[in-house]
Design a protein around this nucleic acid. Structure first.
Lengths: 139, 139
DNA sequence: TAAATTAGTTAGCCTAGCTAACTATATACC
DNA sequence: GGTATATAGTTAGCTAGGCTAACTAATTTA
């Protein structure tokens, strides 16, 4: 068992408990973690097209269509004309903006508890490792 | 954006590209990453019951039933009587054992390329961070 | 101006999980 | 000892969260 194998085993082992707990945290807002990922992206990076969202999340366009349409239905995002007649930009509504802030605050204790006992410096290193892998994997 | 939020964003962002690439690597063996996780567990930890597999992988028993039955069909695992008449122990077949070794070797270059440029020490730290989160989340 | 590309959609599929309800066996309690 | 409860695995049917193929409409390229 190499240290690389060990790392990826551990990575995968964490996924399901983490996502399950995250979905529990998001339940009061009628959101699943994938929908939350879209809201967070729009909040952090501003209005973007369907294709931008697909690229950022590494999913296909039809998957974005479903996610965004659900968020429109919930009143958390709206679409508007983009730079040409094909493109649609997705942006948070007023309600959506407020909600994102509320959820971010709500999630903080959960994140802190999950990382309890881990030195800030190690969290930073781990974050950089994950970022580097993303870079390496996507060519 | 706290460093905790940043970490978990990065964690989630890596998941889909990683699993997609892993599934590409496993395709020649007719395996999906979830099935591979079962084989690896049995190889690393020896024969275990359906409930053990469910607990280890943080999934429910019916999900294990499906995974194991598929692996039985492929001839990679077999079940045998457990310590009482209810329990069934799942173990690798000879073919399964060979396959696991072959796949482990096959995956190594992929893992190394994914972690290219990351100091061994940082990989260890990141692995420990992930393990600690698992511990914190599961009570 | 015709061909190729791009943005988004629709339909229908798949993986990888889930819950509810069941059978068979084992354990605990009165 | 016999009944109630718990445990191991299964079955049926559901869901989240993706996917591909094929399409329309708009844009860019040759």
């Amino acid at each position: 068992m190499t240290i690389e194998q060990d790392f990826f085993n551990q990575y995968r082992l964490m996924y399901r408990p983490f996502i399950n707990q995250l979905n529990v945290q998001l339940e009061p807002y009628q959101l699943y973690s994938s929908q939350w990922a879209v809201l967070r992206f729009l909040n952090d990076k501003g209005p973007h097209s369907f294709v931008d969202i697909a690229n950022f999340m590494s999913i296909e366009k039809p998957s974005v269509t479903k996610l965004v349409h659900k968020l429109v239905e919930l009143g958390y995002v709206e679409t508007m004309a983009g730079k040409d007649k094909r493109e649609k930009l997705v942006h948070l509504t007023m309600h959506g903006e407020e909600l994102v802030q509320e959820i971010k605050s709500h999630l903080n204790p959960f994140f802190e508890q999950a990382l309890a006992g881990v030195p800030k410096q190690d969290i930073d290193i781990a974050t950089q490792v994950l970022a580097r892998i993303c870079m390496n994997i996507n060519q």
